[in-house]
């Protein structure tokens, strides 16, 4: 389980998953939960902002880029990076933006490879655990 590997004591690591396609979100959430992670599901950026402003802990943001509404995944990741710099972030899309280095930690191409997702999450949450 991810929650136990990186640290000296078990603790819950939480991923905020932002995806507007419900079946894709369900598939990703299932995979992340099977890795021992807590998953908070948001269907758009507005919901994600509500979660980020709540008292719920978030260690990693995984967001689709293209979503309906005023804010897309890039804007959401930039906001999270500026306001909550300790939160790691992965952005996903069928097309890769030119540069993500200033606002996201990783990019995942659609259609998602669940093994790659697990590896990226493990790597980033391992880093997050080391920093704390």
């Amino acid at each position: 389980m991810l929650a136990v590997e990186g640290g000296t004591s078990p603790r819950e690591l939480t991923v905020l998953l932002v995806e507007d396609e419900v079946l894709t979100r369900l598939m990703l959430a299932d995979e992340l939960r099977s890795q021992g992670l807590q998953v908070l599901e948001a269907s758009n950026a507005d919901e994600a902002l509500t979660v980020l402003h709540s008292s719920l802990p978030v260690h990693l943001l995984f967001t689709d880029i293209r979503m309906p509404g005023e804010m897309d995944g890039v804007a959401l990741a930039k906001f999270a990076h500026a306001r909550f710099p300790r939160i790691k972030s992965i952005i996903g899309s069928s097309w890769q933006p030119e540069s993500i280095g200033d606002f996201a930690d990783a990019f995942l191409a659609k259609p998602y490879d669940l093994r790659e997702l697990a590896e990226q999450v493990r790597r980033l949450l391992g880093e997050s655990d080391d920093e704390q």
Binding site: L26, A29, E41, S43, V51, L56
Partner: peptide
Amino acid sequence: EVLLRLSIAAYLRDCGYSVIEAADADE
């Protein structure tokens, strides 16, 4: 309401259910 959805979904998972979350009727 996302926080309410997360709350009841987490509770039901803790009770042992498998939970699928939908934000609206279309989903």
